[in-house]
Nucleic acid binder design. Structure first.
Length: 377
DNA sequence: GAGTTCTTATTCCGTCCATG
DNA sequence: CATGGACGGAATAAGAACTC
């Protein structure tokens, strides 16, 4: 890499003061979301034409996919997490016209039916995580959701419901898995569901025009390490992603009851395939950072096959801690890229503004991230 | 309506403790 | 006694609710 030509370092990546929770990005909580400005800026830098295809192998709730579409690029996202894919699908297609009315009908109907005669589902430890009235309200909403025939409408309503599940449960917060007393009623469930639906409606009203462009978006619910090149429908020009970190957030855990309620894949199966899930780094035979590196090598092997010759692959990574030892994920990624025939074309570091709520440096040990761009040799 | 308090959401790990 | 589910500490800031 020629130091003087670093393009990435010409930009301020902190995006201090930028409102990152605007529009469709805010319809569902998801830990460690991209700030939309990051993929936006990367596309600005690396896309040569509108026909360039953007790929995110760890798409999560779809921030990079949305930003690609806003700029008129088609995109492809992959994630093992079925909830991530659900949210990504909903964000990247138009909101069905009947969404708002459907939401209101469901709320009215549940209010009339409550407490109803439907038994709550037999979820593991359900009484520990949900008060009885909450279970009842959620059961009725799910029952109503099952009557919705139009799949895009149903999925958008599922996102609305999913977005409130942690708030009405006893789970402390999205990323703190402990039961606390919260004082939520069945009526609160309906109110929050109503608010969540309205939020989705207004988010989509603000963002109507970019959905009319010809950009497409494919979301694959797959383990990226098992994806074959032929599974990816188009050649990729830009890879933009933030990979999971070893021993870090556990998406399967924080979203466990969302998945149970919505009848998505078994969370414990998702755990097995989730790169970076903490149980893999503990116990008698723990993984270490070399395992993560190997997985990243197989990711780069895939990327080599599905990208165009002059494609760029940009990663945003921070550091993590495994059993008290600090791990530089950027270094691991560079080694993995190198092993798979990529070189580091550019890099920059990004300090996390101390006034952000999403990354609270006072308590999070991550104080900065790296932005790395790789190209094929 | 500006200024103040209250409430709620957030957190990219280490460790405890239940259960088999 | 290993496994994996559950828990904790508490600063910070955005948004809501209240006050004058």
């Amino acid at each position: 890499m020629t130091q003087k030509e670093s393009e990435l370092r010409q930009y301020d990546w902190t995006f201090q003061g930028a409102n990152s929770r605007e529009g469709v990005h805010s319809i569902h909580p998801y830990p460690a979301k991209f700030i939309p400005q990051i993929p936006h800026q990367l596309i600005e830098i690396y896309a040569d034409s509108k026909s360039d295809v953007v790929f995110d192998p760890f798409c999560g709730s779809g921030t990079a996919l949305v930003e690609a579409m806003k700029k008129g690029h088609s995109s492809i996202g992959v994630d093992v997490h079925p909830l991530a894919c659900l949210i990504s699908r909903v964000k990247t297609r138009p909101l069905p016209d009947d969404f708002g009315n459907r939401a209101r009908e469901i709320i009215t109907s549940v209010r009339n039916r409550y407490p109803g005669d439907v038994e709550p589902p037999d979820l593991p430890n359900i009484d520990h995580w949900f008060k009885k009235p909450i279970q009842q309200a959620l059961t009725l909403i799910i029952d109503e959701l099952e009557q919705v025939e139009n799949q895009p409408t149903k999925e958008a309503l599922q996102v609305a419901l999913s977005s409130i599940i942690v708030r009405v449960s006893n789970q402390d917060s999205n990323t703190r898995y402990a039961a606390v007393e919260k004082d939520v009623t069945a009526e609160d469930v309906l109110q929050k569901f109503s608010q969540a639906s309205s939020k989705i409606e207004s988010a989509f009203k603000k963002n109507s025009e970019w959905r009319r462009n010809s950009a497409t978006c494919d979301v694959l619910n797959e383990n990226i390490l098992e994806v074959e090149p032929s599974d990816i429908p188009q050649k990729v020009d830009l890879v933009i992603t933030s990979p999971p970190y070893p021993n870090a957030y556990e998406y399967w855990l924080y979203h466990k009851y969302r998945m149970y309620w919505l009848g998505l894949a078994d969370p414990t199966e998702v755990k097995e395939n989730e790169i970076g899930a903490r149980p893999h780094y503990q116990g008698s035979n723990p993984r270490d950072e070399t395992d993560f590196e190997e997985r990243m090598v197989s990711l780069f092997d895939l990327l080599r096959d599905i990208t165009t010759e002059d494609a760029t692959a940009s990663f945003v990574v921070g550091r993590s801690v495994i059993q008290g030892e600090e791990v530089d994920n950027g270094k691991l990624l560079e080694r993995a890229a190198d092993a798979a025939g990529f070189y580091t074309a550019d890099s920059a570091s990004r300090s996390i503004p101390s006034n952000t709520k999403s990354f609270n440096p006072g308590y999070s040990k991550i104080k900065d991230e790296k932005i790395l761009t790789f190209k094929k040799l």
